[in-house]
């Protein structure tokens, strides 16, 4: 069984308190801070996982689930660390940190490096990414992109898979997943309102580390009912040369879905018929007409989900729409 952590929104807010970075967003601090994936006194599991449903912090009546999405940050050529889009990703994370209300956590849709698996530029590029990401005080839940395997969209990494455990894969796991206590590139996070009025799950799929085990896990994870279901996978439904796209899409289609969050294409796009957004405009060479930027997703007091995409330079809105919990337009 793949481990699942259950985090109440209160505990996430507490993690911000623990960092001493609560902003002027009307969120009260409390004394039961539990940061995602970090061990605390009383965490007897020893693996940094928690089942912490602390509800001693009031959640604001509006925007009670707020998270940012950032995706695809890499240079145009492999091993070209000197052309890593550092200034772009620095600005994006600075913008995310300045969002009000402050995002409780952030999702990243994959592709943080462009490194030849046979060479040694992986860590240097992820170090640049993580230095930028450090500007944001909340937890970050990363998806694995094809560049965290070999770079090819049709690559498949992980023990027993065709491309095996590449240096890109290992450095990604060690640098970006270890801080949240994960050892595999597919995982689940659960969230719950402090008054238990709603639940949400984030299911992170790794289409470039696809396996029978992941397939079984995904079916199981998506079968557990929650008010909201967010699925994050690097490749969208149409980047179907990635080994896990077609099989995971079939599983996702058989379960409730609020929104699928992807990257891979270096643009921002919304495909309402697919209940899918693409946030791949985090510094990688742009494939579309949209500028670099990020998205903010929030739950409104009426229970609908608001999605807003922003230009990183002007903070101009690039898109805005709302959906119901079942993914239909609100």
């Amino acid at each position: 069984m793949h481990p699942t952590r259950i985090l109440s929104i209160a505990s996430l807010l507490g993690s911000l308190t623990a960092c001493g970075t609560i902003k002027g967003d009307g969120i009260a601090g409390h004394d039961s801070a539990v940061a995602a994936g970090e061990s605390t006194p009383g965490d007897s599991s020893g693996d940094g996982h928690h089942d912490s449903r602390h509800t001693d912090t009031a959640i604001p009546p509006s925007n009670d689930l707020v998270f940012a999405v950032v995706g695809d940050t890499r240079p145009p050529n492999e091993d070209d660390t000197s052309h890593y889009p550092t200034s772009i990703i620095d600005t994006i994370w600075t913008d995310v940190e300045a969002e009000s209300p402050h995002p409780q956590f952030a999702l990243t849709t994959g592709d943080y490096m462009y490194a030849n698996p046979d060479n040694s530029e992986q860590q240097a590029q992820l170090d640049k990414y993580m230095a930028a990401r450090a500007t944001f005080s909340g937890p970050m839940y990363p998806a694995m992109g094809n560049h965290e395997c070999t770079g090819w969209t049709d690559s498949n990494c992980g023990t027993g898979n065709a491309d095996g455990v590449t240096k890109n894969y290992t450095v990604f796991i060690d640098t970006m997943l270890s801080p949240i206590g994960e050892t595999l590139p597919y995982y689940e996070e659960k969230f719950e309102a402090s008054d238990h009025s709603w639940t949400a799950k984030l299911v992170v799929v790794a289409a470039n580390a696809w396996s029978t085990a992941q397939s079984t896990w995904l079916s199981s994870a998506l079968s557990e009912p929650t008010t909201y279901t967010f699925v994050m996978r690097h490749e969208d439904n149409y980047a179907d040369t990635a080994p896990g796209v077609t099989p995971s899409s079939a599983i996702i289609a058989a379960h409730p879905l609020t929104l699928q969050i992807c990257g891979h294409s270096h643009e921002y796009a919304h495909y309402s018929s697919d209940q899918q957004i693409i946030v791949g405009n985090g510094g990688a060479p742009l494939t579309g007409s949209t500028n670099y930027g990020y998205a903010v997703i929030s739950r409104k007091s009426d229970g609908t989900i608001s999605v807003k995409a922003y230009d990183y330079q002007t903070h101009a809105s690039m898109d805005s729409f709302s959906i119901k919990a079942d993914g239909s337009p609100a």
Binding site: N77, A239, D240, H264, S265, T287
Partner: peptide, 9 residues
């Protein structure tokens, strides 16, 4: 056109 591409060099 039904398949999303990334780049060519």
């Amino acid at each position: 056109p039904k398949s999303d591409d990334e780049e060519w060099v």
